[in-house]
Protein backbone atom coordinates (compact mmCIF):
# COMPACT_ATOMS: atom_id res chain seq x y z
CA UNK A 1 0.00 0.00 0.00
CA UNK A 2 2.85 2.32 0.88
CA UNK A 3 4.40 1.73 -2.51
CA UNK A 4 1.11 2.37 -4.23
CA UNK A 5 0.61 5.61 -2.36
CA UNK A 6 4.16 6.74 -3.04
CA UNK A 7 3.58 5.83 -6.62
CA UNK A 8 0.35 7.77 -6.90
CA UNK A 9 1.71 10.85 -5.13
CA UNK A 10 4.53 11.14 -7.64
CA UNK A 11 3.87 13.03 -10.85
CA UNK A 12 4.92 10.11 -13.03
CA UNK A 13 2.72 7.78 -11.00
CA UNK A 14 -0.27 10.03 -11.55
CA UNK A 15 0.44 10.14 -15.24
CA UNK A 16 0.57 6.37 -15.28
CA UNK A 17 -2.77 6.26 -13.51
CA UNK A 18 -4.31 8.54 -16.13
CA UNK A 19 -2.83 6.46 -18.93
CA UNK A 20 -3.87 3.13 -17.46
CA UNK A 21 -7.42 4.23 -16.76
CA UNK A 22 -7.54 5.85 -20.18
CA UNK A 23 -6.63 2.62 -21.90
CA UNK A 24 -9.08 0.76 -19.72
CA UNK A 25 -11.79 3.16 -20.84
CA UNK A 26 -10.71 2.57 -24.42
CA UNK A 27 -11.29 -1.14 -23.95
CA UNK A 28 -14.76 -0.36 -22.65
CA UNK A 29 -15.29 1.71 -25.78
CA UNK A 30 -14.57 -1.34 -27.93
CA UNK A 31 -17.02 -3.53 -26.03
CA UNK A 32 -19.64 -0.83 -26.23
CA UNK A 33 -19.07 -0.43 -29.94
CA UNK A 34 -19.20 -4.18 -30.46
CA UNK A 35 -22.69 -4.31 -29.01
CA UNK A 36 -23.74 -1.16 -30.83
CA UNK A 37 -22.77 -2.69 -34.12
CA UNK A 38 -25.69 -5.11 -33.69
CA UNK A 39 -27.87 -2.06 -34.32
CA UNK A 40 -26.87 -2.49 -37.92
CA UNK A 41 -27.90 -6.17 -37.94
CA UNK A 42 -31.12 -5.42 -39.78
CA UNK A 43 -33.13 -7.77 -37.60
CA UNK A 44 -35.34 -5.09 -36.17
CA UNK A 45 -33.16 -4.87 -33.09
CA UNK A 46 -33.66 -8.43 -31.94
CA UNK A 47 -30.00 -9.31 -31.34
CA UNK A 48 -29.21 -5.82 -30.04
CA UNK A 49 -31.98 -6.02 -27.49
CA UNK A 50 -30.76 -9.41 -26.42
CA UNK A 51 -27.26 -8.12 -25.70
CA UNK A 52 -28.63 -5.02 -24.05
CA UNK A 53 -30.68 -7.20 -21.79
CA UNK A 54 -27.65 -9.31 -21.00
CA UNK A 55 -25.56 -6.26 -20.17
CA UNK A 56 -28.27 -4.81 -17.98
CA UNK A 57 -28.89 -7.91 -15.91
CA UNK A 58 -25.76 -10.05 -15.74
CA UNK A 59 -24.28 -9.77 -12.23
CA UNK A 60 -20.69 -10.03 -13.50
CA UNK A 61 -21.30 -7.11 -15.81
CA UNK A 62 -22.77 -5.17 -12.92
CA UNK A 63 -19.60 -5.72 -10.96
CA UNK A 64 -17.51 -4.63 -13.93
CA UNK A 65 -19.66 -1.58 -14.14
CA UNK A 66 -18.44 -0.54 -10.70
CA UNK A 67 -14.87 -0.99 -11.87
CA UNK A 68 -15.68 1.11 -14.90
CA UNK A 69 -17.09 3.92 -12.78
CA UNK A 70 -14.02 3.83 -10.56
CA UNK A 71 -11.87 3.94 -13.69
CA UNK A 72 -13.72 6.95 -14.98
CA UNK A 73 -13.53 8.77 -11.68
CA UNK A 74 -9.85 8.01 -11.24
CA UNK A 75 -9.13 9.16 -14.77
CA UNK A 76 -11.01 12.40 -14.29
CA UNK A 77 -9.92 13.09 -10.74
CA UNK A 78 -6.24 12.49 -11.47
CA UNK A 79 -6.35 14.56 -14.63
CA UNK A 80 -7.89 17.47 -12.79
CA UNK A 81 -5.32 17.27 -9.99
CA UNK A 82 -2.52 17.25 -12.54
CA UNK A 83 -4.06 20.15 -14.37
CA UNK A 84 -4.07 22.28 -11.23
CA UNK A 85 -0.56 21.23 -10.31
CA UNK A 86 0.67 21.98 -13.80
CA UNK A 87 -0.94 25.37 -13.82
CA UNK A 88 0.66 26.26 -10.52
CA UNK A 89 4.04 25.28 -11.94
CA UNK A 90 4.01 28.56 -13.87
CA UNK A 91 2.61 31.25 -11.59
CA UNK A 92 3.33 34.07 -14.03
CA UNK A 93 2.23 33.43 -17.60
CA UNK A 94 4.16 34.43 -20.71
CA UNK A 95 3.12 37.59 -22.50
CA UNK A 96 3.73 35.76 -25.73
CA UNK A 97 3.44 32.01 -25.88
CA UNK A 98 3.65 30.31 -29.24
CA UNK A 99 2.77 26.78 -28.22
CA UNK A 100 1.66 25.88 -31.72
CA UNK A 101 5.25 26.15 -32.91
CA UNK A 102 6.31 23.21 -30.80
CA UNK A 103 3.31 21.01 -30.14
CA UNK A 104 0.02 19.67 -31.49
CA UNK A 105 -3.16 21.35 -30.36
CA UNK A 106 -4.69 17.98 -29.49
CA UNK A 107 -1.98 17.45 -26.88
CA UNK A 108 -2.67 20.73 -25.14
CA UNK A 109 -6.45 20.53 -24.83
CA UNK A 110 -7.07 17.09 -23.37
CA UNK A 111 -8.69 18.50 -20.27
CA UNK A 112 -11.06 20.54 -22.42
CA UNK A 113 -11.88 17.71 -24.82
CA UNK A 114 -12.19 15.38 -21.85
CA UNK A 115 -14.64 17.75 -20.17
CA UNK A 116 -16.81 17.89 -23.28
CA UNK A 117 -16.80 14.11 -23.48
CA UNK A 118 -17.75 13.99 -19.83
CA UNK A 119 -20.72 16.30 -20.35
CA UNK A 120 -21.81 14.18 -23.26
CA UNK A 121 -21.47 11.15 -21.10
CA UNK A 122 -23.91 12.55 -18.56
CA UNK A 123 -26.51 13.23 -21.25
CA UNK A 124 -25.81 9.90 -22.86
CA UNK A 125 -26.24 8.01 -19.61
CA UNK A 126 -29.50 9.81 -18.93
CA UNK A 127 -30.86 8.85 -22.35
CA UNK A 128 -29.73 5.26 -22.61
CA UNK A 129 -28.15 3.78 -19.52
CA UNK A 130 -30.89 5.03 -17.23
CA UNK A 131 -33.44 3.71 -19.71
CA UNK A 132 -31.88 0.30 -19.96
CA UNK A 133 -31.36 -0.14 -16.28
CA UNK A 134 -34.49 1.25 -14.79
CA UNK A 135 -36.84 0.83 -17.75
CA UNK A 136 -38.84 3.66 -19.21
CA UNK A 137 -42.39 4.75 -18.92
CA UNK A 138 -43.42 3.87 -22.43
CA UNK A 139 -41.84 0.43 -22.13
CA UNK A 140 -39.65 0.83 -25.16
CA UNK A 141 -37.04 -1.76 -25.93
CA UNK A 142 -33.46 -0.51 -26.07
CA UNK A 143 -33.57 -0.63 -29.83
CA UNK A 144 -36.67 1.53 -29.84
CA UNK A 145 -35.03 3.95 -27.42
CA UNK A 146 -32.07 4.27 -29.75
CA UNK A 147 -34.30 4.77 -32.78
CA UNK A 148 -36.29 7.46 -31.05
CA UNK A 149 -33.29 9.31 -29.68
CA UNK A 150 -31.46 9.34 -32.98
CA UNK A 151 -34.53 10.41 -34.85
CA UNK A 152 -33.83 13.82 -33.38
CA UNK A 153 -31.31 15.68 -35.61
CA UNK A 154 -30.24 17.97 -32.73
CA UNK A 155 -29.40 14.99 -30.55
CA UNK A 156 -27.58 13.43 -33.49
CA UNK A 157 -25.51 16.53 -34.00
CA UNK A 158 -24.59 16.57 -30.32
CA UNK A 159 -23.75 12.89 -30.46
CA UNK A 160 -21.61 13.15 -33.57
CA UNK A 161 -19.80 16.27 -32.35
CA UNK A 162 -19.03 14.52 -29.10
CA UNK A 163 -17.47 11.63 -30.93
CA UNK A 164 -15.39 13.94 -33.05
CA UNK A 165 -14.14 15.45 -29.83
CA UNK A 166 -13.62 12.04 -28.25
CA UNK A 167 -11.60 11.13 -31.32
CA UNK A 168 -9.54 14.26 -30.84
CA UNK A 169 -9.11 13.41 -27.16
CA UNK A 170 -7.81 10.00 -28.11
CA UNK A 171 -5.72 11.39 -30.95
CA UNK A 172 -3.38 12.52 -28.22
CA UNK A 173 -4.43 10.29 -25.37
CA UNK A 174 -3.86 6.88 -26.84
CA UNK A 175 -0.26 7.20 -27.96
CA UNK A 176 0.44 9.43 -24.97
CA UNK A 177 -0.49 6.58 -22.66
CA UNK A 178 2.08 4.37 -24.33
CA UNK A 179 4.70 7.07 -23.98
CA UNK A 180 3.83 7.23 -20.30
CA UNK A 181 4.17 3.47 -19.96
CA UNK A 182 7.56 3.85 -21.50
CA UNK A 183 6.73 2.15 -24.74
CA UNK A 184 8.12 4.48 -27.32
CA UNK A 185 10.82 3.24 -29.54
CA UNK A 186 11.12 2.78 -33.22
CA UNK A 187 10.20 -0.89 -33.07
CA UNK A 188 6.69 -0.31 -31.77
CA UNK A 189 5.96 3.23 -32.86
CA UNK A 190 4.32 2.22 -36.13
CA UNK A 191 2.21 -0.42 -34.46
CA UNK A 192 1.08 1.96 -31.74
CA UNK A 193 0.25 4.60 -34.31
CA UNK A 194 -1.83 2.06 -36.21
CA UNK A 195 -3.77 0.93 -33.15
CA UNK A 196 -4.12 4.55 -32.08
CA UNK A 197 -5.69 5.36 -35.44
CA UNK A 198 -8.27 2.64 -34.84
CA UNK A 199 -9.19 4.35 -31.60
CA UNK A 200 -9.17 7.96 -32.57
CA UNK A 201 -10.48 7.48 -36.10
CA UNK A 202 -12.25 4.18 -36.77
CA UNK A 203 -14.05 3.79 -33.45
CA UNK A 204 -15.48 7.32 -33.40
CA UNK A 205 -16.54 7.02 -37.05
CA UNK A 206 -18.38 3.79 -36.34
CA UNK A 207 -20.05 5.31 -33.30
CA UNK A 208 -20.98 8.37 -35.32
CA UNK A 209 -22.41 6.17 -38.05
CA UNK A 210 -25.16 4.97 -35.70
CA UNK A 211 -27.13 8.24 -35.42
CA UNK A 212 -26.71 8.80 -39.15
CA UNK A 213 -28.07 5.33 -39.80
CA UNK A 214 -31.10 5.98 -37.65
CA UNK A 215 -31.58 9.49 -38.93
CA UNK A 216 -31.75 8.10 -42.44
CA UNK A 217 -34.16 5.41 -41.27
CA UNK A 218 -36.19 8.07 -39.49
CA UNK A 219 -36.71 10.07 -42.66
CA UNK A 220 -37.28 7.02 -44.85
CA UNK A 221 -39.95 5.61 -42.56
CA UNK A 222 -41.49 8.97 -41.85
CA UNK A 223 -40.56 8.86 -38.23
CA UNK A 224 -42.77 5.89 -37.29
CA UNK A 225 -41.41 3.63 -34.65
Amino acid sequence: MGTLLQFYTSSVGKKLAVGLTGLFLCSFLVVHLGINLFLFAGDGGESYNMYAEFMATNPLIKMLEVVLVVGFLLHIFTSVILWFKNRSARPERYAMYDAAASSELSSRVTLLTGSVVFMFLVIHLRTFWFGSRYGNEAGYTMYQLVMRAFGNPVYDLLYITSFVILGYHLRHGFQSAFQTFGINNSRYTRLIELIAAIFWLVVPILFAAIPLYFLRMHYMTGGIV
Binding site: S11, V12, A89, S102
Partner: peptide, 15 residues
Protein backbone atom coordinates in the same frame (compact mmCIF):
# COMPACT_ATOMS: atom_id res chain seq x y z
CA UNK B 1 11.09 21.68 -6.90
CA UNK B 2 7.61 22.53 -8.15
CA UNK B 3 7.93 21.52 -11.79
CA UNK B 4 4.78 20.32 -13.50
CA UNK B 5 4.16 16.86 -14.83
CA UNK B 6 4.53 15.62 -18.37
CA UNK B 7 1.48 15.55 -20.59
CA UNK B 8 3.40 14.41 -23.62
CA UNK B 9 2.96 17.52 -25.75
CA UNK B 10 6.58 17.04 -26.83
CA UNK B 11 7.23 20.79 -26.85
CA UNK B 12 10.43 20.02 -24.95
CA UNK B 13 11.89 17.94 -27.75
CA UNK B 14 10.93 20.54 -30.34
CA UNK B 15 12.57 23.38 -28.40
Amino acid sequence: EGFGSCTNTYSCEAE
